[in-house]
C-alpha cells in the first residue's frame, strides 16, 4: 500500500485534506468553522479532479501552432468539472454564511449546541 500511495502523492494529499475538512465539520461546534471545513473539503475535491486530468509532460489544452494531436495536451474534461465545482462552492458558501448570520441574529450564538438548546427552550411551554 505504501509505494502506490507515494506514486499517487497528489491524490493522497487531497484525501488527507478531505479528511481534515470532514473532521472540522464534525468536531467544531462553531458554525463558521464548520463552513471552513466544508470549504477545505471542496478544495480537496478540486485538487483530486485537477490531478486526475494531468498527464506528464503535456501542455495546457490551448491550441498553439495548429497542433491538434491528442498526445500534445492534457485532459480538458476535469478542468471544466473543477470550474463547475468552484461556482457551486461559492454559491453554497454564501448561502451558508447568510443562514449563519440569521441564526446569530435570532439566537445570539454561533455555537450549534447553544442554538439547539435555545430552540428546545423556545419549543417548551
Amino acid at each position: 500500500m505504501g509505494a502506490p500511495l507515494f506514486v499517487n502523492m497528489e491524490e493522497t494529499i487531497s484525501i488527507i485534506l478531505f479528511g481534515i475538512g470532514f473532521t472540522m465539520l464534525l468536531l467544531h461546534r462553531n458554525l463558521i468553522k464548520k463552513i471552513m471545513g466544508m470549504n477545505i473539503m471542496d478544495t480537496a475535491v478540486y485538487l483530486f479532479l485537477a490531478v486526475k486530468g494531468y498527464i506528464n509532460g503535456r501542455m495546457v489544452p490551448i491550441v498553439v501552432d495548429g497542433i491538434q494531436d491528442v498526445s500534445a495536451y492534457i485532459n480538458p474534461v476535469p478542468s471544466g468539472l473543477v470550474l463547475t465545482g468552484i461556482v457551486v462552492s461559492v454559491s453554497t458558501t454564501a448561502l451558508m454564511l447568510a443562514l449563519t448570520i440569521r441564526l446569530y441574529e435570532r439566537y445570539g450564538s454561533l455555537d450549534l449546541d447553544e442554538i439547539l438548546i435555545r430552540m428546545k427552550e423556545e419549543e417548551r411551554p
Partner: peptide, 13 residues
Amino acid sequence: LWTVSYLPAFGNA
C-alpha cells in the same frame, strides 16, 4: 487511501 493505492499512476497517458 486504500482506494487511492489501487488507482492508476499519476500523470500516465
